[in-house]
């Protein structure tokens, strides 16, 4: 049932005559999913860093 629909890998990449429409959409999808993952990780790291700084300040106050 599963049959590769293109004659070659090049034909697949060209996806004639609509490669110029199909591939950019999937690349944008990849960028958006990857971008959101990166933003979340960065936000998480920043929040942790903020708490660390706060803890350090509290420690210097106490000593």
């Amino acid at each position: 049932m599963l049959e590769f629909q293109f004659e070659s890998l090049m034909a697949f990449l060209a996806m004639a005559p609509h490669g110029a429409y199909v591939w950019p959409v999937y690349i944008l999808g990849l960028l958006i999913l990857g971008g959101l993952t990166w933003v979340n990780l960065r936000q998480h790291r920043q929040a942790i860093r903020l708490v660390k700084r706060q803890l350090e300040r509290e420690e210097t106050h106490e000593s």
């Binding site: 999913l33 993952t37 979340n40 998480h44 903020l50 708490v51 706060q54």
Partner: peptide, 29 residues
């Protein structure tokens, strides 16, 4: 994937909002 992204974002927001809570300090410490 959306669940993955929302959970990730929620975790970062929770740490940010609860930064003065003792459990967050404990966790980071």
């Amino acid at each position: 994937a959306a669940a993955y992204l929302v959970l990730g974002s929620m975790r970062a927001i929770v740490i940010g909002r609860e930064r003065r809570a003792s459990w967050v300090k404990e966790l980071v410490g």
